[in-house]
Design a protein around this nucleic acid. Structure first.
Length: 570
RNA sequence: CGGAAUGUGGCCCAGUGGCUAGGGCACCUGCUUUGGGAGCAGGGUAUCGUGGGUUCGAGUCUCACCAUUCCGACCA
């Protein structure tokens, strides 16, 4: 490609709204332009990179027997009603009506559509397993789009769905995809970790996230210092030693007046007891039913674990009205004893290692002291519903947990029959009996992967692409455009390199040398062939490696071979 | 959804209630230049976010709305 005719404009300054480095550099390098909040034009330079990532994805998936299709972005609401998600997916699902007043949505994901598509074609166990995928634009009306392509509302996603005859076979499909993802991100040149994850709104039982390690990441990962255990902080468990409570001096339960003391901090200061002596009682709406969750005063409730422990679809903090209704008191005085309404109580197991605790009395301005969790109330469920913390012991070995920030670029889920049961995605098994398909679903944020790559590969001059995902593998830069020998040499490289299949650009713009070199570094061409008057006189040109900044003088007649071999090593 | 800030050529920013709204970058023309974002000369480019209000007069004060961004809450 000739840069003089390319749809490209670079900038010295980025708009002030751009905060993270991938966003700033993609705008400065002329890769993206914002059209609306969280919605971007992908300019030719970005689209070239996206196409390369997609090609890697297609190769690795096709190799493993996955089949590409393309489903509509506009989906009928009735499919979502059938799966049950129309009701609780929330405002992130962009809904609208057509001219006949029928309900539709823009697909944020395609479980409903693919399950419907498969059930129309699936008859016999002999047809399975199937793995269907597509690469397509998704829309999620995010509350707060930010960071450019990292959290857009419209984005490109590869989503795949597996259908198997039973759980064993589905787990095999799951790990096949896990391997595919590992291969894909490795080929893209990313430093990443596969971590245990919770399943969230997609639902299901077994899940891993593929996290690109970067300080700007929005996710927190805990991983073992010794073994390969790694998990999203929502999911991570630690091997906590839970000693039996010291019952040598058990107090009586007593009501104390605590006017206006609502938060653990306030009451802790007021009663002069550390936060560890408190039971934090939080009211959640779990599938719209109020549930009291008890955690140690110094820790936070983990909504993902609550969702898992109760096999729930949704977990939300309860609104003030609900809290007042079920506790009979102002917010801040909830406790497990004498709840006004009989609701389910979920207790974190750590509180059973403690006695003489303090909790709300379900009476405004009153708390109870001397609480013995075994004596004074009965929990409906005892579970791990808090967060594992840095420094705690790994659940698999004697290492300790360390914390990292990550960007989630992919996730794999084992779904079971969460969608196939309500949507009746059935087939006849080998005994002629009707059986339900066991599903998995697998996503890769393609545009986010691009942003994540830049987060991980840049310096103060610009982007540092690897050839595998670079818009162009190399650029030829005639340093003096008005020098005939220089431009003739540059043009020869340009055509010779294309001849042997190198994806190369030539910067034939009427610009000064410094301008072109700065642009080359900003855009991040992995290999830059600088053709200058001085070296050409000596029968040589300079070949620069973007990542190292290293420049080597090469004889003109050896340059094409040198570049071809060099690209293989980058 | 709560808190805060910002909206002035394509981008970054000036602009005291008062004349024809400025500068830098970018863009166009010409000359000169050409090894790390050149110089000179000339030129084009703004419903000052939108709508009301105050005023003899509003980019500037005021109200509402819209948009964007940040922090929080939330979220594959």
């Amino acid at each position: 490609m000739r840069l003089s005719k390319y749809f490209l404009k670079t900038y010295k300054e980025a708009p002030k709204e751009a905060e993270v480095v991938s966003h700033i550099l993609m705008i400065r390098a002329g890769m993206i332009q914002k059209l609306a909040a969280g919605i971007y034009n992908y300019l030719p330079l970005a689209q070239k990179s996206i196409a390369k990532i997609e090609k890697i994805i297609r190769e690795e998936l096709d190799k493993r027997g996955c089949q590409e299709c393309l489903m509509p972005a506009v989906q009928p609401g009735e499919l979502w009603q059938e799966s049950g998600r129309w009701g609780y997916y929330g405002p992130e699902l962009l809904r609208f009506k057509d001219r006949k007043n029928a309900e539709y949505c823009l697909g944020p994901t395609h479980e409903e559509v693919v399950t419907d598509m498969v059930r129309r074609n699936l008859k016999s166990y002999r047809q399975l397993p199937w793995n269907i995928y597509q690469i397509q634009t998704k829309f999620r009306d995010e509350v707060r789009p930010r960071f450019g392509l990292m959290r857009g509302r419209e984005f490109v996603m590869k989503d795949a769905y597996s259908f198997d005859v039973d759980v064993d076979s589905a787990i095999k499909s799951y790990y096949l995809m896990y391997d595919a993802y590992t291969a894909i991100f490795k080929r893209c040149g990313l430093k990443f970790k596969a971590v245990d994850a919770s399943t969230g709104a997609i639902g299901g039982e077994l899940s891993h996230e593929f996290q690109v390690l970067a300080d700007s990441g929005e996710d927190t990962i805990l991983s073992c210092s010794k073994c390969d255990y790694a998990a999203n902080v929502e999911k991570a468990v630690s091997d906590r030693v839970l000693p039996a409570a010291d019952r040598s001096c058990v107090e009586e339960m007593k009501e104390v007046s605590t006017p206006g003391q609502k938060t653990i901090e306030e009451i802790s200061a007021f009663l002069k007891k550390p936060a560890e002596n408190f039971i934090k009682t939080l009211i959640f709406l779990v599938d719209d039913q109020p549930v009291a969750v008890l955690v140690p005063g110094e820790q936070d409730a983990n909504e993902a674990k609550i969702q898992g422990a109760l096999h729930a679809n949704s977990v939300w903090p309860a609104d003030e009205e609900t809290v007042k209704r079920v506790t009979g008191a102002e917010v801040g005085f909830a406790g497990p004893v004498n709840l006004k309404e009989k609701i389910k109580i979920v207790a974190d197991r750590q509180i059973y290692s403690r006695v003489n605790l303090v909790c709300g009395a379900n009476k405004t301005d009153c708390h109870l002291t001397g609480i013995d969790p075994e004596r004074d109330f009965k929990a409906d469920l005892i579970a791990d519903v808090t967060f594992a913390r840095t420094g705690e012991k790994c659940p698999h070995c004697d290492g300790v947990l360390e914390q990292f920030k990550g960007i989630e670029v992919g996730q794999v889920f084992h779904l079971g029959t969460k969608y196939s049961t309500p949507m009746k995605c059935n087939f006849l098994d080998k005994n002629g009996k009707e059986s339900t398909a066991v599903m998995g679903c697998y996503g890769i944020g393609v545009t986010r992967t691009l942003a994540a790559f830049i987060e991980q590969n840049h310096d103060d001059k610009g982007i540092i692409w690897s050839p595998a995902v670079a818009p162009f593998e190399a650029v030829v830069i005639p340093l003096q455009g008005n020098n005939e020998k220089v431009s003739a040499t540059a043009e020869k490289f340009y055509s010779d390199l294309r001849e042997i299949g190198v994806d190369v650009a030539i910067d034939d713009r009427d610009e000064r040398a410094g301008f072109k070199m700065n642009d080359a570094d900003l855009i991040g061409f992995p290999v830059q062939i600088q053709v200058g008057a001085r070296s050409v006189e000596n029968g040589q040109v300079e070949v620069k490696v973007r990542r190292t900044g290293e420049k080597v003088l090469i004889d003109i007649d050896k340059t094409v071979d040198y570049v071809r071999d060099l690209l293989k090593t980058l």
